[in-house]
Design a protein around this nucleic acid. Structure first.
Lengths: 197, 197
DNA sequence: CGCGACGTTGATTTGCCTCAACGATTGTGG
DNA sequence: CCACAATCGTTGAGGCAAATCAACGTCGCG
């Protein structure tokens, strides 16, 4: 068997122990895929079939509202997950697009496979519990940050926390993730340079 | 044994089945408490020890920033959970206050009890997985709503979704939850009345 | 009764948006 | 391999949604 799934297996082993048998079964349920830059893997109106783990590359999940403005829910690079989580969990049509920002390699698990996996080896309940608890705690922090901080402060915080993303993710995507326009991000950066001097 | 824990047991049984033995063990780990209006059960600097399920009453989780403004992360009434989830999950000092808005009765479970419970009866892994997955999906929707909608639209959506909260929760708490000032909420409501006529 | 908590209203200010024009860089088809 | 288009970021002018501040009304509670 190829070890294309190794990054994800290593990721999971940070949270639960896996025997060779369990690992093999897990891998039998996974799909390894190449996603070309700008390719869309989730779109509104279609159920989000997969949980997507990024092996290499970067992706963005975003909403387009009635006025045509886009709003970024999530950004992801190596070792992160991305999807329209609401659509995935409830198996209802998505509201979001999920799109590759770079040529990417991903590992996907579909909803039924996930259920079967948890039934076969209940320890995966534990893995998904930990995963979603951590994501939830993180989301709460993000909401607080959005509620309590100015655009400049949020950008500052983001740069500290994710210097890698600042380098690789287009500015319009970062601005949209942080909740302001990309023009305004330009102006923030200009102010910032002044401050440093 | 008293059945003060019945509401929570019923809640849990919506997601997993429980034998009498499991139920009894669960209840042995719970605490039933009365919280007086304005009483604070979580505060910054102290680890959030409990997950809190509201049996009766209402509560609010909020952050006070450097300028002294408060920002509401969560509101809760009967049959909802509330806590500083980040603090609880990671067992680190909280950033938030959690306060009763009315005289309230709650059921609390502490972090160690939760771990023991899941070890003793692994099916509780499943319960907490489902719980956090649903909360996570909900949080993502809230972020999208905050990113893509105006103050008026968010209030409209909130009123549709939680008519009970509109009646029972003070306006300043709702405004703060939705991310704008309570003065502005006054003005929104005024506009709204005009529209209806 | 009197005080404190909550909500309202109006005047003014401001953080961020919108629009438009313009470089710089990247990608692509001839 | 070049020309041209598309994409991305920057800059400035003007505008708007919502904040801030201050004053006032009202209600419930000690």
């Amino acid at each position: 068997m190829s070890d294309q799934f190794l990054p994800l297996v290593r990721y999971i082993k940070k949270y639960i122990e896996l025997s060779d048998q369990e690992t093999a079964y897990l891998c039998s349920l996974l799909h390894y895929r190449f996603i070309k830059k700008k390719q869309i893997i989730v779109q509104p109106g279609f159920v989000c079939k997969y949980r997507t783990y990024i092996v290499k590359g970067s992706m963005r999940a975003y909403l387009i509202d009635q006025e045509g403005n886009d709003h970024t829910l999530a950004l992801g690079i190596e070792d992160w997950w991305i999807s329209d989580y609401y659509s995935y969990i409830h198996q209802v049509p998505a509201d979001l697009f999920v799109e590759a920002l770079e040529d990417s390699y991903v590992i996907q698990m579909d909803y039924n496979a996930e259920l079967i996996l948890m039934e076969t080896y209940p320890k995966f309940e534990r893995f998904f519990r930990i995963l979603s608890q951590r994501a939830l705690a993180y989301m709460q922090r993000r909401i607080l940050s959005n509620l309590s901080k100015s655009a400049g402060e949020r950008y500052e915080e983001f740069s500290q926390k994710y210097p890698l993303l600042i380098q690789r993710i287009p500015q319009y995507a970062i601005a949209s993730y942080l909740g302001f326009s990309s023009e305004f991000l330009s102006k923030i950066k200009k102010q910032r340079v002044k401050k440093v001097n």
